[in-house]
């Protein structure tokens, strides 16, 4: 439905992305691509795959930023995908009802059969979550792997989004934010999970965990080791150790 659900969704499924352990390996992005190119939005078309101007549909893209200056700064890898916002402007701008937010779990989906390819939803999304497939003439986007998470043809442990199951750095977590005991709720609470661009008023479901502060000493008061007491010369301490 183009209107957002009248009542808050029963579940709020989404992701927590841990910027403290993401090493920018692009595993999530590529695994997402391979699952989804045969999935709900198949195919994720690639234009000019072997020439200049190569450009394909990806639901998940990994950026790299530097924050701060010099050695004191940080390099932070930043995976970006649909945040399945509670107040999703991409849904309300849709003129056809192709974009909708599911009442049961809050997932924002596009029904390609209804999409006229006006791209307005991609304009409305501040996060760049929607991509236009020119060959299909429709918008495609992250489905939170709706064809995995409920898929009875998969083993239960596999019923998580592809990006989560493949992440080598354990930087992606999936769960129900309405459940205070879920991993995602707990991590958000404990690690200060935050919204991207809260000023946009989209109330994103997905949360990002900040990089932990750098640790450049100060722990245990270490500064410089004291000289070994050495009455017997530089190796005297060994004698004492051995004769002790």
């Amino acid at each position: 439905m183009t209107d957002l659900p009248e009542r808050a969704p029963e579940k709020r499924l989404g992701l927590v992305i841990d910027l403290d352990t993401c090493v920018g390996c692009h595993a999530c992005a590529v695994n997402c691509k391979e699952w989804n190119t045969g999935g709900y939005h198949a195919p994720l078309t690639d234009e000019q795959p072997y020439a200049a101007g190569t450009d394909g549909i990806w639901f998940n893209r990994v950026h790299a930023f530097e924050a701060g200056e010099g050695a004191a700064g940080r390099t932070v890898y930043f995976p970006r995908s649909c945040l399945h916002c509670d107040d999703a402007p991409c849904v309300t701008v849709c003129p056809t009802g192709a974009s909708y937010k599911r009442a049961e779990d809050g997932i924002v989906l596009v029904d390609e059969d209804l999409c006229i390819g006006c791209k307005l939803c991609s304009w409305a999304c501040p996060y760049g979550a929607r991509e236009y497939d020119a060959s299909a003439g429709v918008i495609k986007k992250c489905t939170l792997c709706i064809d995995r998470i409920y898929n009875e043809n998969l083993e239960e442990v596999e019923r998580v989004p592809a990006c989560v199951s493949t992440c080598p750095a354990n930087a992606r977590h999936y769960g129900d934010f309405n459940d205070p005991d879920s991993d995602v709720s707990r991590l958000t609470r404990e690690r200060g999970g935050y919204d991207l661009m809260p000023e946009m008023g989209c109330a994103p479901t997905n949360k990002y965990l900040p990089p932990r502060p750098a640790r450049k000493g100060g722990e245990g008061g270490d500064e410089v080791l004291a000289d070994a007491e050495s009455p017997g010369g530089v190796l005297g301490w060994i004698d004492r150790l051995l004769s002790a």
Binding site: L19, G24, H26, A29, W58, R61, V62, H63, A64, F65, E66, A67, G68, E69, A72, G73, R74, T75, V76, F78, R80, P126, Y194, D195, L196, M197, P198, E199, Y208, P210, P211
Partner: peptide, 17 residues
């Protein structure tokens, strides 16, 4: 604010995806 990293200092893009 887009990355939430503003608290760490000036945020500059290093690599596009």
């Amino acid at each position: 604010s887009a990355t939430g990293l503003g608290r760490l200092g000036r945020v500059a893009l290093l690599e596009t995806p």
